[in-house]
Amino acid sequence: MAPFLTVDTVLGPMYEVAFVNPYTAPVFWVVLSLILVPFAQIILWSTCIIFGAIPAILHMYRNRNARPINDWSKETVLITGGSHGLGKQLAETLAYKHAPKKIVVLDVRPTTFNDGSISYYECDVGDQQMVQKVAERIIREEGHPTIIINNAGIVSHALSVVDTPEEEIARVIKVNLLAQFWIAKAFLPNMRKTDHGHIVTVSSVLGSSAAAFAAAYCASKSGVTGFHEGLRQELLGTNVRMTCVYPGLIDTGMFSGMVHQRPWLTPPLKTSEVCNAIVTALEVGRSRDVFLPLYTYIAPLLRFLPIEFGDAVRQMSGANQEMLAYKYSASAT
Rank of each mutant, 00 (worst) to 15 (best):
Q321C: 15
H157V: 13
H157Y: 07
P100F: 11
A212K: 14
K133H: 15
I57P: 06
A281F: 09
H144G: 05
R64F: 09
L5S: 14
E136D: 12
Q321K: 13
A53S: 03
N276H: 11
D115E: 05
R171V: 01
D251Q: 06
V279K: 00
G87N: 03
S203K: 00
L269V: 01
V105K: 13
S119I: 10
K327E: 12
T333P: 10
R140Q: 11
K174Y: 06
V200K: 05
K193Y: 07
L231C: 03
E167M: 14
V108D: 03
F181G: 04
I35C: 14
E75N: 13
T333K: 08
F113A: 12
F51H: 03
P267V: 08
R303Q: 07
T146H: 04
L32G: 11
V30T: 15
E142N: 15
Q129H: 05
L178F: 09
R303E: 03
W29P: 11
P268N: 08
N70S: 13
Q129V: 05
V10W: 07
H59D: 05
R62K: 02
G82Q: 14
D124V: 10
V125T: 15
Q315W: 09
I69D: 10
L11K: 02
Y297Q: 01
A25T: 09
A281N: 09
T225S: 02
C218T: 06
K102V: 10
D311Q: 05
L36Y: 10
H196I: 02
A216T: 10
M191H: 09
A66H: 12
L301C: 11
E16P: 06
F187P: 05
A184S: 08
L249W: 01
